[in-house]
């Protein structure tokens, strides 16, 4: 049952042949693939790490940009408001001036109209007085006296009555 013979050597040779075959055919390619896989996994992990880091950077960058943009928008709004208020003030000022001018123009016109009316009234009163006085003292007075009386009358009229017109 335990007879040792040349089979022992044959088995060693068989085994060594098997080692050589498997090493060449199976072991090396499989180990190569396993190394390639672990390398690929490592690369994938590295890549993922890099991607995450770049994404974080991008996020921070965008946040900063957004903040800057918000600040700029605030500044623009503030500036626009300031400009608008300045413009408003100017417009108000201009309108006030215009109103003032219009008022002044209106006052001048009124004054002009008054003077004109006064002139008209004067001449009318003169004509009326002349007519009235003429009829009353047609015969008594000379033309020179006449004019003196009328003038004094008108002057009185001026002082007392026309001021109220």
């Amino acid at each position: 049952m335990i007879d040792i013979n040349s089979t022992l050597i044959a088995q060693i040779l068989n085994f060594l042949i098997l080692v050589a075959i498997l090493r060449a055919v199976a072991y090396k390619p499989i180990v190569k693939v396993m190394q390639a896989r672990s390398k690929k996994i490592q690369e994938s992990i590295d890549q993922a790490d890099m991607d995450r880091r770049s994404a974080e950077n991008l996020l921070a960058e965008n946040k900063a940009k957004l903040a800057a943009a918000g600040k700029k928008a605030d500044e623009i709004i503030e500036k626009a408001e300031k400009e608008a208020s300045v413009l408003r003030e100017e417009r108000i000022e201009a309108t006030k001036r215009e109103i003032e001018q219009m008022k002044k123009a209106a006052a001048e016109e009124i004054e002009r109209d008054r003077l004109k009316m006064q002139e008209n009234l004067k001449s009318e009163v003169v004509a009326l007085s002349m007519a009235a006085a003429g009829k009353i003292i047609e015969k008594n007075l000379s033309e020179k006296d006449n004019e003196g009386i009328i003038k004094s009358f008108i002057d009185k009229l001026d002082e007392k009555k026309l001021g109220d017109l």
Partner: peptide
């Protein structure tokens, strides 16, 4: 030996990164 080689053959027939 033949069986072992056959197993090795089947194992390495279509080597891929996703075994």
């Amino acid at each position: 030996m033949a069986i072992v080689i056959l197993i090795a053959y089947f194992a390495t027939r279509r080597l891929s990164l996703v075994p």
